[in-house]
């Protein structure tokens, strides 16, 4: 058993946040000087092989974050609601999968939610300064005061996590309980989990713990058991132990090789710089042309010719040699 996080101290200084503004590693649409010293990276480890699908984590998340999900419909499956919403930061996704090797039905249950990427696509896509921050302990958090509700984070995210609220038009997702972690607690979902399928600690501790679990699973015949810490996004601060780590997508569409979409990279990278340069060049070319060529003015002669034409007196024929290309 992984040693549980002790209950909070009741000492008067225990509620002082252990990280904050000074620990911001990345800030959306802003340049920040990274903190000189990085906090120990934290991580949540979700061991799908130990999950019993009780949804205690889902309930604890609603409770801690003071969220009320709309009463929905029973679609005949355990997954409820059917997708993440602005009020459902974490969702148990249930998949009935027939293992082709054993012909056994396997009930795959994955707790979906923000992965807290080391290279967050949402933060990269966000146009609003400070609406998304990444703390040096790895937590990616949305700052609702700065959010403008554009939904660019949805396009940036490789895991399809953020949702825009129709109530306040800002984006919502799992905070990794940054408020709890700041005072030395684990996330609410981890606290509620009855089987220790969710554990929380430093990222190194979690990797070590995952190693033990994977060894155990392999000894039980799950040859492809492994850790899901996808390198395409620089690793994540929410990791899974999967019994079929060779095919993450069987777990309700967990991306096999997540990375920030090249379209988002192009949009936020080359398009921005080339676009601004091209527009600047067009304006500068106009200015330069005016300086060099001077204004294109109508002459007195032009006015006289027009008057003759309007009066019916034939204006002088144009100079010879310039007729070609004219319409008859």
């Amino acid at each position: 058993m992984f040693p549980p996080i002790p209950n909070p101290s009741v000492a008067s200084d225990a509620a002082t946040p252990r990280f904050g503004e000074k620990d911001i590693l990345r800030r959306s649409a802003s340049e920040v000087t990274p903190p000189a010293q990085r906090l120990t990276e934290v991580a949540k480890l979700i061991d799908v092989s130990k999950c019993i699908g009780c949804k205690a984590c889902q309930a604890a998340c609603l409770e801690w974050n003071n969220l009320t999900e709309e009463i929905g419909f029973n679609h005949g499956v355990y997954t409820n609601p059917m997708d993440l919403t602005p009020d459902t930061f974490t969702l148990m996704r249930f998949t009935e999968w027939v293992n082709p090797e054993t012909e056994n039905l396997e009930w795959l249950i994955r707790k979906d939610g923000c992965m807290h990427c080391e290279d967050p696509g949402c933060l990269k896509a966000c146009p609003a300064p400070g609406a998304i921050v990444q703390y040096s302990n790895g937590i990616v958090d949305f700052q609702h005061d700065n959010c403008i509700g554009c939904g660019y984070c949805i396009k940036g995210c490789p895991f399809n996590i953020p949702r825009i609220s129709k109530v306040d038009h800002t984006a919502y997702k799992c905070t990794l309980c940054s408020d709890r972690v700041a005072v030395g607690q684990g996330p609410a979902c981890q606290k509620a989990c009855p089987t220790q399928a969710i554990v929380f600690g430093t990222k190194d501790e979690m990797k070590d713990w995952a190693e033990l679990r994977i060894t155990d699973l392999k000894s039980r015949g799950f040859a492809n058991a492994g850790l899901y810490d996808p390198p395409g996004v620089g690793g994540t601060h929410v990791m899974y132990v999967l019994h079929h780590a060779d095919t993450p997508s069987i777990y309700a569409g967990l991306p096999d090789n997540p990375r920030i979409s090249p379209l988002v990279d192009a949009w936020k990278g080359v398009t921005k710089y080339v676009g601004l340069a091209v527009m600047g060049f067009a304006a500068a070319a106009g200015f330069l042309h005016y300086v060099v060529a001077g204004p294109n003015k109508v002459s007195e002669e032009d006015e006289e010719n027009a008057e003759r034409l309007a009066d019916g007196t034939p204006p002088p024929a144009p100079p010879a040699g310039l007729q070609e290309g004219r319409t008859p």
């Binding site: 949805i154 979409s261 398009t271 091209v278 527009m279």
Partner: peptide, 19 residues
């Protein structure tokens, strides 16, 4: 979402062109 990603890129490029 993939279509939205194409849309934002196309929208940005077209906006630069129209400007």
């Amino acid at each position: 979402i993939e279509q939205k990603r194409v849309a934002v890129l196309v929208h940005a490029v077209a906006a630069v062109c129209i400007i």
